[in-house]
Design a protein around this nucleic acid. Structure first.
Lengths: 140, 140
DNA sequence: GCATATCGCAACCATCATAGTTACGGATAC
DNA sequence: GTATCCGTAACTATGATGGTTGCGATATGC
């Protein structure tokens, strides 16, 4: 279905910042944990900064820090920060407007999909980054 | 985020079968409403048949029919029939096992994502194909 | 039996999204 | 001034997706 790992990596990054912080972490260090390229990390962090979750600092000793307490960041916040369009995309080419079903189905589906996405977000809202950090500590 | 329209098209197809039925519809007719190629339709119908939602019949006068009442088919059934792996995929390459976060995050995320998907499915379960057919009739 | 309509499915192609990579400019700390 | 780090554009490789063609199998009606 969905085919991009940005949400997963974003949660990983925030958990790492909370676990290793509050000192700033460099994108290179984070990339070492996620096992990818620093630029990929910075691209995702740019979204998280836009959402007010993290801040960056250039120069030696610089890096990235959380702007909010780990207890105050839920997976829903991270999800919204990624600015994905919709979980379920509609038809790639518009359906036939001469067919009663084709003419009306998209409006109906948009309503249903929004409802489903709201339910999804509500569940995501129940988990905080702090809980994930706690889980890491428990497992070690 | 998710980037495939199979779920949307599957719902469209079932709504059309319920709306125009109970006579069998050909994949070519359905393709005319969805505005795509008949083979694309048959690929999706193959999934729906595997899930026991529709049946097919070859030869002249053949086509596709619902196997269950429209009232008994929910969007959750359709969603499951598409056999999408997971809404949120994990890392493309495994995170660093030498990092405490990298070593434990995937297990934790799998649990959270399963919970979120369950919430999503629960909401999808509230809508039936019959309701979508009713919606089409209302709009005309 | 034969012609026709329809599905079943494999194979191929074009397009696009994603993630990875390189490169380089700008800012900051020491 | 130098080393470190972010910011971002540009390019590439890979894979997913949807569309298309082709052909065999099956069923219907004559």
């Amino acid at each position: 279905m969905n085919n991009n790992t940005r949400f997963t990596v974003a949660i990983h990054i925030l958990t790492l910042l909370a676990y290793c912080g509050p000192e700033p972490l460099t994108s290179e260090f984070i990339a070492g944990s996620v096992n990818t390229n620093p630029v990929v990390i910075r691209r995702i962090l740019a979204n998280l900064r836009q959402a007010g979750l993290v801040s960056s600092q250039g120069g030696p000793g610089g890096g990235w820090q959380l702007l909010k307490a780990a207890e105050a960041i839920t997976l829903r916040h991270v999800f919204l920060a990624m600015e994905e369009t919709s979980i379920f995309p509609l038809h790639s080419s518009d359906p036939n407007p001469l067919c009663p079903v084709g003419r009306t189905i998209q409006q109906a589906l948009m309503r249903r999909f929004q409802s489903a996405q709201a339910a999804l977000e509500q569940d995501l809202d129940r988990t905080t980054i702090a809980q994930l950090v706690q889980n890491v500590s428990d497992e070690c």
